[in-house]
């Protein structure tokens, strides 16, 4: 499965946990942004690590929201 990563930039409070968890996927400016991709488990771990629940994962094939 491939997931599309979306960041709710209004919710993102720049905690930086996603960058720590998945540095190949996220980078931190004033808010986090997506710079790449990675294995599903890593994307989930990053999404879960976000204290602001600002990261959504969408199944690229079906468009279904899989996280949160």
């Amino acid at each position: 499965m491939t997931y599309t990563v979306q960041i709710d930039t209004r919710a993102c409070a720049a905690h930086g946990d996603c960058v720590q968890t998945a540095p190949s996927v996220f980078e931190l400016d004033d808010v986090a942004r997506v710079i790449g991709t990675g294995p599903d488990e890593l994307l989930f771990a990053a999404a879960e690590a976000c204290p602001s629940a600002a990261i959504a994962l969408i199944d690229t094939a079906t468009g279904e929201l899989v996280y949160p």
Partner: peptide, 9 residues
């Protein structure tokens, strides 16, 4: 300074 965090970590 949230941007300092990843490197600090």
């Amino acid at each position: 300074r949230p941007r300092a965090l990843p490197a600090a970590r």
